[in-house]
Design a protein around this nucleic acid. Sequence first.
DNA 1: TCCAGGTGCTAAATCGGATCAGCACGGGCG
DNA 2: CGCCCGTGCTGATCCGATTTAGCACCTGGA
Lengths: 385, 385
Amino acid sequence: MATNRVTLADVARSAGVSQTAASFVLSGRGAEMRISADAQERVRRAARETGYRPNIVSRSLRTGTSHTIGFVSDTVATTPFAGHLIWGALDAARERGHLLFICETEGDPDLERELIDAMHDRGVDGIVLASMYTRKITVPRALINGPAVLLNAVASNRSPIPSIVPDETDAGRTAAGVLLDAGHTDRIALIGAAPPRQTPKGSLAAVQRLQGIAETLDRAGVAMLDAIPCPEWQPRSGYEATRRLLEKTTPTALICFNDRLAVGAYQAISDAGLEVPEDISVVSFDDDLIADWVRPGLTTVALPHYELGRKAVHVLLDGGHDRSTGADARPAIHKIAMPLRTRDSVRVVAAAASEPPPGPGEVLGSPGPREVLGPSGPREVLGQT
Amino acid sequence: MATNRVTLADVARSAGVSQTAASFVLSGRGAEMRISADAQERVRRAARETGYRPNIVSRSLRTGTSHTIGFVSDTVATTPFAGHLIWGALDAARERGHLLFICETEGDPDLERELIDAMHDRGVDGIVLASMYTRKITVPRALINGPAVLLNAVASNRSPIPSIVPDETDAGRTAAGVLLDAGHTDRIALIGAAPPRQTPKGSLAAVQRLQGIAETLDRAGVAMLDAIPCPEWQPRSGYEATRRLLEKTTPTALICFNDRLAVGAYQAISDAGLEVPEDISVVSFDDDLIADWVRPGLTTVALPHYELGRKAVHVLLDGGHDRSTGADARPAIHKIAMPLRTRDSVRVVAAAASEPPPGPGEVLGSPGPREVLGPSGPREVLGQT
DNA sequence: TCCAGGTGCTAAATCGGATCAGCACGGGCG
DNA sequence: CGCCCGTGCTGATCCGATTTAGCACCTGGA
């Protein structure tokens, strides 16, 4: 810090009023506190001419609000895919005049406690506790020392802290809907579906995506052809599962439970001498980087990282009022829509019966009414050097 | 902030001493200030039992040091590749009891100024101004209001601010050395070399890498076969350049100026019916994610992002003393070694004449004495979902 | 006996704003 | 003439630490 910062006392002296008056004027309470228009003008001019900026540290000491938020993540911060969580939080914080402390716990509970405490020591207005993938977590005790929200996570223990998570169930509906809308009313198989026990620890995506898919297919009276579980959601597993599926039967559409599984599925389909989407359509989840790299581009239901980050900050800053809405004591769980990214992996077989006939210009691609575009898409990812 | 935080006054009261005495004890100046062993013990016990934690906001107001650092980047924060810059800074800061404010300017000078000011308003101890790729930047005026360092950037205007950059010249020496050590003493071509004017604006890598390469080849008496410039360092350019090269002549080794160019070169080599490394060896720079994905794995000189981030924080916190070392008024430029990542893209033709004969177990791979391993390699990058 | 010097602490000021509790002045009214 | 009230401000206190200045007591030497 430079030693020559202009203080409120300087401004007051230069305007010929008391520090109190200057404070009132600059905090917008001039009229309310009956400061004359003339004096107000003098104060404002002095502030402008001296380049006065209020010292937030001292304000924070007195008022207890620091215009600062803590962002504590397990490993999100330096992870390529979910850096958008931070980006959204950063943007929302800036819009509302806040700055973000960011740190990583690396999954270590002691470190987590230490970092949360360090943030409280610095008087943060609240803490965003973020998880790299959507899951249940046990809320650390240190968090109760102030306002907080859970980002990409829900509390496994009882806790009054609100959560922000992607709407995975609706994503399941969207994925199934894409196929239905494109006229696939038969021979739809699932890659990566797993009974709840076989799912990554605490992960919610597997269960909820399946639920949304099943609900939508049921409602349309479409039976599932098959559902192959995968031990882990990696390309290799997707490859194995799809190969086994193709040995048994011939699907015309696949719903893969994430993009990495879908990449494996692509490989297996190709190995079987078939093509996407001519022989088999593929829909998936996440909108991983690879979804745009594979050919044909993968139609997928995107994790709305940017929006999740934004929402977390907004809920945190507007927080506490959640409890007044409704009489239930359970903490709010805010679900963020997962937008569909339409690419080239779904073949349009026929317009869906339930859809209005397509207009002249929109024969191909058929996004249909299910497409939900995120309020602002991610920026292009840049290379290094 | 919770209302029931324990304050120093509480501790003092509970220990039966004055707040002054308590402050002395807890700041480690108890003996110096002649507080009796008994009183010291009482204070420490009270602090422990009440769970006292000093309020950094108030300390900051009094002492002007907030144990807080600002990290201002253009777009680094949410970029997959260079998130390691932040990770290194985060680790170093935590080791020294500091927390990081992180923000992105998106290249907008107004936003940059606004964010730097916002950080100064919060009493940061210093600011790290980071750039996504190594380049010259004009140091914003707002930065002179406190200690600062430039990360991955050097000042184009006169400025007393120290810089932390990768040692690109030495990286050039390393890349050329890898080939020489593997016995390539002929037919070495460069892909991506460019006259200074044709280089990305302000980028230093092109010039310095070339300088190191040329110096090392010269010293070994090896003439360059050819050097093809590339308008931009992307796979397509690398592909085009290599294709043109292969039409003219037949190199046995390529030095590509970054990994993306090398990926293009791989493609062109394959199209020409040749193989890496049997027909043509390839060395490159950056250690981009793709360097480990392509087959054969690409031997490359890594950008030491993690170390750069660490060093920036250390220089910042130890700063100001730079000027005293040496009589020259120019700001310090700290160059961080770029470690070699040996993979499988370089064929060993023969042990280099200048090298000692290889030991029994190390016939292949020949890392040689040039290999510099970073103090701690990057963690594995995790997927999402 | 007196005082210098050491021991073991404490009162009060300070950092820069926010805020509570008034205070001086002028005009209108009874 | 005295009182009340609205206008337009100001003094003092507070937030929670750090730090300067200094005070009371005791011991030992002259």
